[in-house]
């Protein structure tokens, strides 16, 4: 009977461990990658807006040589606040499916004003063709701005869809996992109804196994993926993704250590109590 109970408890510990790890991953995903607030916090923490500002400056500068305009024309086209607001609006559109509105009209007005001032200061009369070239150039500068603050402009719709799908899956997974977890917990309690310490030991075993698994997952990911050298679209975005992966892995590591400690303590304490009881 004791052996049978031991086997049943081991199976229950296995199931508990699976639901612990799955639950941890689900909660972690919904609190990090699928959480708008977390993303915005990480963007600020990684100086993403500052990096986009530098990227924008370089982007405008790339057109300076071919435009024939001096540096002054490219000054004050956008502010840090504008960039921050527009980037956050893109994030909002990803998570809430809202339409993105940005400050590109302001950028266009500013570059028009700068060009006008330059032409006025240099007493330059422009031909009709040149006027057309200037308008095309202004549109190009607006495009540069929209591309840079749009983060991954061409993929925004796909990202919104992926996040929506992810949220749906996570919501279902949460319900299923909570149900499964409660059912297994009740079953474990019922089996060990006369021996509460065995119940604690079973929980402890599953916690210990879950902790080891979380550590293993973190180890395998770090070993197999060269996180430091990920390059996606821009340096700013790559840095942000790297930091986010490290943050998530860090959470795996700390939670794993915590679960291992709690698991070992539960097993040791419950068996010491058993000794004392006997």
């Amino acid at each position: 009977m004791k052996i049978v109970k031991g086997i049943i408890n081991s199976i229950l510990a296995f199931l508990l461990c699976v639901s612990f790890v799955a639950g941890f991953i689900v909660v972690l995903l919904s609190n990090t990658v699928l959480n708008e607030k977390y993303i915005v916090e990480q963007l600020a923490k990684n100086q993403f807006y500052e990096k986009v500002e530098i990227d924008l400056k370089n982007g405008f500068e790339e057109y300076q040589y071919q435009s024939g305009f001096p540096e002054t024309v490219f000054e004050n086209l956008c502010s840090r606040e504008m960039i921050e607001k527009d980037v956050n609006r893109v994030i909002e559109s990803w998570y809430q499916g809202t339409e993105t509105v940005n400050h590109s009209a302001d950028v266009e007005l500013q570059i028009q004003a700068n060009i006008e001032q330059y032409l006025k200061e240099n007493n330059m009369d422009v031909t009709e063709k040149q006027q057309k070239n200037i308008q095309d150039f202004e549109k190009m500068m607006v495009q540069v701005y929209e591309n840079k603050v749009g983060i991954v402009s061409n993929y925004n719709k796909q990202i919104t869809k992926a996040i929506e799908k992810g949220k749906e899956v996570i919501a279902v997974a949460k319900k299923v996992l909570i149900g499964t977890f409660v059912a297994i917990l009740i079953l474990t309690l019922l089996i060990n109804v006369k021996d509460f310490l065995a119940f604690v030991s079973t929980i402890g075993t599953s916690l210990l196994a879950s902790g080891i698994l979380l550590e293993l997952i973190q180890f395998v990911i770090e070993k197999n993926i060269d996180i430091n050298h990920i390059l996606v679209f821009t340096q700013a975005l790559s840095d942000f993704i790297k930091e986010m992966i490290y943050d998530v892995l860090n959470k795996f590591s700390w939670s794993g250590i915590l679960l291992i400690i709690v698991g070992i303590m539960s097993i040791v304490v419950s068996n010491c109590r058993k000794e004392r009881g006997n």
């Binding site: 296995f14 030991s201 210990l208 196994a209 080891i212 698994l213 097993i267 068996n271 058993k274």
Partner: peptide, 18 residues
């Protein structure tokens, strides 16, 4: 001894689960 045995048993079970 039995308490120690049980502790080791649960520890082994945890590793087997992993």
């Amino acid at each position: 001894k039995e308490g120690l045995k049980a502790t080791i048993f649960y520890g082994i079970v945890a590793f087997l689960i992993v």
